[in-house]
């Protein structure tokens, strides 16, 4: 199939058919958004799926592995769990394991994390002066694991040209292709 025959399809379409193609393209985009937002509601986490970006949890998680998170407020944080947390002044959330935890009678909890592959705890990673994490810092708790799949997004973020090329190809294909 060469380029000319691709455009043949478009040429043979009438207005209604073309409109239909645009609408189905819109459906794909909006259903992806709906699934993402729906997952946010079901898991309670603002970011239900994260890609591991560093090697600090090796050999459990490598760069490009996918983690599924939940963040139910009624489930207490406990030692040994893998939490994803945000630190003030850092854009990228960190995936590390809870090492120490102190919970007061009124339910306030503070905890300290450490990466399995790091030799020291995370106090050096926290915001200056911050000694503990609290529930507000947590984006989610790791519940499921899928290897390698996140490599695609890492490639796309590191090579923006590749991202735009893929997006352009997909968009072009959906618009031009006839069902």
């Amino acid at each position: 199939m060469d380029i000319a025959s691709l455009f043949d399809d478009v040429r043979r379409m009438n207005k209604r058919q073309f409109l239909y193609q645009v609408l189905s393209f819109g459906m794909i985009v909006s259903s992806a958004l709906m699934i993402w937002k729906g997952l946010m509601v079901v898991t309670g986490s603002e970011s239900p799926i994260v890609v591991v970006l560093s090697g600090s949890m090796e050999p459990a998680f490598h760069r490009g592995d996918l983690l599924f998170l939940t963040n139910y407020p009624e489930e207490p944080v406990r030692v040994g769990e893998i939490v994803v947390f945000k630190v003030e002044g850092r854009d990228i959330p960190i995936v590390h394991r809870v090492l120490k935890l102190h919970e007061k009678k009124n339910g306030t909890v503070k905890f300290l994390t450490k990466g399995d592959n790091n030799s020291v705890d995370d106090r050096g990673l926290y915001a200056p002066g911050q000694l503990w994490l609290t529930k507000n810092d947590v984006v989610g708790r790791a519940r499921g694991f899928l290897p390698y799949v996140g490599m695609v997004t890492i490639l796309m973020n590191e090579y923006p040209k590749f991202k735009y090329a893929v997006l352009a190809c997909l968009g072009f294909y959906v618009l031009v292709h006839r069902e």
Binding site: P59, V79, K100, E103, D116
Partner: peptide, 27 residues
């Protein structure tokens, strides 16, 4: 693929209802 073993000390103090400290771990 892997087990992450950890030995936890759990105790109560007057100021904290629950304390959990990991003392040792092993992959």
């Amino acid at each position: 693929k892997q087990l992450f073993l950890y030995l936890t000390a759990e105790y109560e103090t007057p100021s904290n209802q629950l304390n959990q400290v990991v003392l040792w771990d092993k992959i």
